[in-house]
Amino acid sequence: MIPYAEVIGDPIAHSKSPLIHGFWLDQLGIEGAYRRAHVRAADLHDYFAARRADPLWRGCNVTVPHKQAVLAHCDWIDPNAATIGAVNTIVPENGVLAGYNTDGIGFLEPLRPLLLRPHLFRMARILGAGGAARAIAHALAGEGFEPVILARTAEKARAFLDSLGISGGHAAALEMFAAPTDFAFDDRAGLLDLVVNTTPLGMAGQPPLHLDFSHVPPGSVVYDIVYAPLETPLLAEARARGLRTIDGLEMLIGQAAAAFARFFGAAAPREHDAALRVRLVA
Rank of each mutant, 00 (worst) to 15 (best):
I2N: 15
G9I: 03
G9P: 06
A13K: 14
S15D: 04
P18G: 14
G29L: 04
I30N: 05
E31A: 14
G32W: 04
A33V: 12
R36C: 07
R36D: 10
V39A: 05
R40H: 10
R40G: 09
A41F: 14
A41W: 09
A42W: 02
D46N: 12
Y47A: 05
F48E: 06
A50K: 13
W57V: 15
R58T: 07
V62N: 10
T63C: 02
H66W: 03
V70R: 01
L71W: 00
H73E: 11
D75S: 09
W76N: 10
I77F: 09
I77Y: 04
A81S: 08
T83P: 00
T83H: 09
G85Q: 08
E93T: 07
E93D: 15
N94H: 05
T102F: 10
T102V: 07
D103G: 05
I105H: 15
E109M: 05
R112T: 13
L114Y: 11
L114I: 03
L114D: 10
L116W: 06
P118F: 04
H119N: 01
L120H: 13
L120I: 07
A124F: 11
A124L: 06
I126A: 02
A129M: 07
L140M: 07
F145N: 04
A151E: 04
T153D: 01
A154S: 13
K156F: 00
K156D: 02
F160T: 03
I166N: 09
A173D: 14
E175G: 12
A179D: 03
D182H: 14
F185M: 08
G190L: 08
D193L: 11
V195S: 02
V196C: 03
T199G: 01
Q206K: 15
P207S: 04
L209D: 03
F213D: 04
V216W: 05
S220D: 04
Y223I: 05
I225M: 03
I225L: 04
I225K: 00
A228T: 06
P233S: 11
R241W: 00
L243I: 02
L243S: 06
E250V: 13
M251P: 07
L252H: 01
L252V: 02
Q255D: 02
Q255K: 05
A258Y: 12
A261G: 07
R262N: 06
F263D: 06
H272E: 13
H272A: 13
A275Y: 01
V278Q: 15
R279F: 03
L280K: 10
V281P: 12
